[in-house]
Structures are given as C-alpha cells and as structure tokens.
C-alpha cells in the first residue's frame, strides 16, 4: 500500500528527468540540497506550520482557556519540566516493559501460528473464521476483563498488548505462506533441495517481509493497548499520567505526553519502514 503511494509520488520526478537530460547543467548549492531532501523539507514544513498556526491562533485569535486547550509554547515548556524531573523516563519505563513483553510474545506466538495455518490447509481453514472475527472486533473492549483476571501490574498490561498485537502477526504470516510461489518450490526441489532447504531458501524470505509489515500495524495497536490498560487501572505509566493530568486540568503537561507518544509512534513505524527497505532491497521492484 504505502509502497504504491510512494512510487506514484516519485513518478513525476522520473518524467522530469527527461528535461534534466536535455539540460546539461548539474544542480548546485541550495537547488541540489532541496532536490535531494525535498520530501523531508516539505514534510517538516507542514509540521512546523501546524504548530505555528496553533500557537498564533491561541495567542492572537481566540482567548486561551487553560481548562480546555493549551498551546505549543506551554506544551513544550511542560514537556521539558517533566523531562527535567525525570518523571517522563520513569513512566516510559513502566509502560515500555509490558509493551516489550506483550509485543515479543505476539511475535513468538503469532508468526508460528500463521505459518502453520498457511502450510497446513486444514489448520488454516479451521482457525481462519474464529481468528478473523477476533481480529475484526475492537478487542480493547475486553481490557477491563483482562485487568480483572491478571491484575493492574505488568502482566495484565502485557497480556492486553499481546491480545491486540498477535493478530497482525498471525494474518500476515498466513498470507505470506500462501503467497509462496509454487514455481520457486519446484525449482528448489528440482535442484535437489529437501524440506529444510525449502524453508530456508523459499519460505522464510517470502514470509519475512509480511511479518515486518505486520509489525508496523502491531506497533500502533500495542501503543493503544498500553494506554487503555493504564487508563483503566494503574498508578504510574504514560497512560496513567495522561489520564491524571487530564483529570487535574493540567492540559499543557497532558499534551506534552501525547506529543511524546506521537514522536515514539513515528520513530517506530519509520524505523520499521527503513528496516524493510534496507533488509529487502528486492522488494523495491515488486
């Protein structure tokens, strides 16, 4: 999906290459810098403009009511206070642990289940409807139940995160296995490859990109899991802090935490996307 969008975005530049071929001059200085970093520059500009507009609106536009809204300058100051006091690091650690364990367990369980579903037709047909129903339903609804069963500590949150994250891994590995090219299987067999060689040479390289793409969805769901778990019952952690600041009407601090979450989410998804491009260079042409 994303790849397709990126490629269409690049296409006009390829056409522009025709004009470039006629002009012998190479781009220099700022023009070259802009040409190389166009995507980053334009993206960063939009983000900056968003904050500037927000700040300006609440400074000169409408009067600031601190009980219902905040503005970027106050938010950044609040964020730095929380960083200085170390509160933010403590909360991140508290929330990060269950995320790490829940996400890790989702990979360790989800990928093998998906692979077996794809490899063994009967297992796939049996599990597909049930798991699809679970994947499609808003599973955060069972958060209170999970907390009751497993407590407010790390295990309750980790299990909630696991439940939310496991399905992208299951279904992406499942479709990964089903998209294995029959011809490649025949090829490896024809050149003397056995079952193990098939796994190593055909199955793993086919499924791996699907798993990484699944990880991108799972990260988003995992972050939701942390927050919801901590909204319900917790005494520390990022989700708890956001709810608490909200209850206390300290909105600049609350927005500071939300901003931090956004940055973390972007770092995760962009990091995974970067890993995809670096680890699977052949997919650029697919």
């Amino acid at each position: 999906m994303d790849q397709a969008v990126e490629q269409t975005a690049e296409r006009p530049r390829k056409l522009a290459g025709l004009e470039a071929a006629m002009e012998v001059d190479e781009l220099t200085g700022w023009a070259k810098f802009y040409d190389d970093w166009r995507r980053v520059i334009l993206g960063a500009m939009a983000v900056t403009l968003f904050f500037v507009f927000w700040e300006a609106l609440l400074t000169w536009g409408i009067p600031l009511n601190k009980f219902i809204i905040s503005k970027p300058s106050l938010i950044f100051i609040g964020l730095f206070r929380d960083i200085e006091s170390g509160l933010i690091w403590r909360d991140l650690l508290v929330s990060g642990k269950p995320l790490f364990f829940g996400f890790g367990a989702a990979i360790l369980v989800g990928v093998p289940v998906g692979v077996v579903m794809g490899w063994r037709v009967r297992v796939g047909y049996s599990l597909d409807p049930l798991l699809t129903a679970l994947y499609a339903s808003p599973l955060v609804a069972i958060a209170p139940l999970v907390i009751i069963f497993f407590g407010v500590g790390i295990s309750g949150k980790a299990i909630l995160i696991f439940v939310l994250c496991v399905f992208p891994f299951v279904f992406n590995s499942y479709s990964g296995v089903r998209s294995v090219d029959r011809l490649l299987v025949d090829t490896v067999r024809a050149f003397g490859g056995g079952e193990l060689a098939l796994y190593r040479i055909v199955l793993v390289p086919t499924v791996l990109p699907f798993v990484i793409a699944g990880a991108r969805y799972a990260v988003g769901r995992g972050l939701i899991g942390v927050l919801v778990g901590e909204f319900f019952a917790a005494s520390e952690g990022v989700g708890y802090r956001i709810a608490w600041y909200g209850d206390m009407y300290v909105l600049d601090r609350m927005f500071g935490y939300i901003l931090m979450l956004m940055v973390i989410a972007v770092i995760f998804t962009e990091g995974i996307r970067w890993a995809e491009r670096t680890a699977f260079p052949w997919r650029v042409g697919m």
Binding site: L183, L184, A190, V202, W282
Partner: peptide, 18 residues
Amino acid sequence: GPGRDRAMVFQEFGLLPW
C-alpha cells in the same frame, strides 16, 4: 525423483527475487 544428471530451464524463469 530429481537428480544431478538433469537440470531444467523454466518458462517463467523461477528465479529467487531475493
């Protein structure tokens, strides 16, 4: 079964993309 004495060239190439 497959053996070293034979090798096939496939119509659709059958190259491993990775």
